[in-house]
């Protein structure tokens, strides 16, 4: 054959390369590729998990925001109700205090009137007493000076007996 081409040697070369291909595939290529594929799958899983968690967190955040908005509305509603209730209560208290003030005022007036009446009555009775005593003094003035004289006489007599 030209160029020293030898079919037997070509077949020997082929056998050599087939053995090399099979050996490299089994010993190196396949295990390394398997390792790389598993690592890639692991990272893809981690990535998917992270995405899933992120989506869940986002969903929860949206849910919380929604709840927060609802809570705000509820708080506002309750605040309005409380304000309304407070206004009503205030009005009621005002009304009650007005009523109480009116009743206090009425009783005070009544009491004052009673006091006035009593004071007037007392004053009348005192005036009557004064008038009576003044009258008595005027009436009994003569008898009193006589009695005084008798007292003095009695006192003089009492000294004389003691001297004996």
């Amino acid at each position: 054959m030209p160029l020293n081409i030898d079919w037997q040697q070509i077949l020997l070369h082929l056998l050599n390369f087939v053995i090399l291909f099979a050996g490299l595939w089994l010993l190196l290529y396949k295990p390394v590729k398997k390792f790389m594929r598993e690592r890639q799958a692991k990272y893809e899983k981690m990535d998917a998990d992270a995405h899933k968690k992120s989506a869940e967190a986002e969903e929860k955040r949206a849910e919380y925001e929604k709840k927060l908005a609802a809570a705000d509305a509820e708080i506002e509603e309750k605040r309005a109700a409380a304000r309304k209730e407070m206004d009503a209560y205030e009005a009621m208290r005002k009304h009650a205090s007005e009523e109480e003030a009116a009743s206090v005022l009425a009783s005070a007036r009544e009491s004052a009137a009673r006091e006035k009446e009593r004071a007037v009555a007392d004053a009348r009775s005192e005036i009557a007493g004064l008038v009576t005593s003044a009258t008595e003094k005027l009436v009994l003035h003569e008898s009193a000076s006589e009695a005084y004289d008798e007292f003095l006489d009695a006192a003089e007599r009492g000294e004389g007996e003691d001297g004996k």
Binding site: H13, N16, I19, L20, G23, L24, L27, L28, P31
Partner: peptide, 16 residues
């Protein structure tokens, strides 16, 4: 060729 194949396969086996 046989020596090269032997060396490569030996290396591959060692790596494996």
């Amino acid at each position: 060729a046989y020596i090269v194949t032997g060396v490569i396969l030996l290396f591959a086996a060692a790596v494996r």
